[in-house]
């Protein structure tokens, strides 16, 4: 099958980019979207052109490295699916596909479809951890964790930090990402000592990095490959408010 792609090409962070049209032949329905780009790149290399730069690593939907805005939707049209797990059978060969990088001021374009998402690491550094004395691993049953808390924390921990929530948010907010971490750690006993300061610090850092403010549009959850629910944001707000009320700093 032949597909037509319109791909964002940009030679460097400060260069002007533009959409370039390519026809890609020999695509099969069970190829992933990244394999489609592989096919394109092989041809570009043979023709002596620059291949399209794009991020990826595991190609099995767990590392969070891949991420493209496909026809205006982060990670493309399939629900709860990363770009690497998105297959060509979901696309009509007759319709050109537009491929763009994540668009957000804190995610500058490095080249073509690759953006620098280190801003999310800065948010984690602000509180996405627990402070515990390192030593021998404690016994697994030393700290009891209620089953519902464990389940909800585990679901929130499924966030792979891909940044699709930011890419999709009309406000360019990283709220769902931050809320996933705050929910994950704030529900577990080990996360309690820093629970409220964590939420406040991570949110403040996120704002300082230039992410937008959350207005709860729900666009993030709609594209999240891990189905992180919007409820996590209510929990984040709860902890931020508690931080403001309890410890006037």
């Amino acid at each position: 099958m032949r597909y037509t792609l319109r791909v964002w090409r940009q030679t460097g962070p400060d260069a002007r980019g533009r959409l370039v049209e390519y026809a890609v032949d020999g695509v099969t329905p069970d190829m992933s979207f990244l394999e489609l780009l592989d096919v394109l790149n092989e041809r570009l290399l043979l023709d002596g052109d620059e291949p399209v730069a794009f991020d990826h690593d595991c190609r099995e939907g767990i590392c969070g490295m891949c991420g493209l805005v496909i026809d205006g939707v982060a990670h493309g049209p399939e629900k709860a699916t990363t770009t690497c797990q998105l297959h060509m059978r979901h696309f009509d060969p007759a319709v050109p596909i537009v491929v763009e990088p994540w668009r957000a001021a804190p995610f500058p374009v490095v080249r073509d479809l690759v953006v620098d998402r280190s801003a999310l690491d800065r948010v984690i550094e602000a509180g996405g951890y627990i402070s515990a004395p390192a030593g021998a691993a404690p016994d697994a049953h030393a700290v009891p964790v209620p089953k519902p808390a464990a389940d909800t924390a585990f679901d929130a921990a499924a966030c792979i930090g891909c940044g699709a929530c930011v890419a999709a948010c009309p406000n360019g907010s990283a709220m769902l990402f931050t809320a996933a971490k705050v929910t994950h750690l704030g529900l577990l006993p080990q996360g309690q000592p820093e629970r409220h300061s964590r939420a406040a610090d991570m949110l403040r850092t996120q704002d300082e990095l230039g992410f937008g403010g959350c207005t709860q549009t729900g666009a993030c959850t709609a594209v999240c490959p891990k189905g992180i629910p919007l409820d996590t944001i209510a929990r984040l707000n709860h902890d931020v408010l508690a931080a403001a009320l309890r410890s006037p700093r």
């Binding site: 319109r6 964002w8 959409l19 805005v69 205006g72 537009v98 763009e100 668009r103 957000a104 001021a105 804190p106 009309p170 406000n171 360019g172 907010s173 230039g210 992410f211 937008g212 403010g213």
Partner: peptide
């Protein structure tokens, strides 16, 4: 919001 997304999607 506008500052957080200076370049929009095509």
């Amino acid at each position: 919001a506008r500052k957080a997304r200076p370049t929009g999607y095509a």
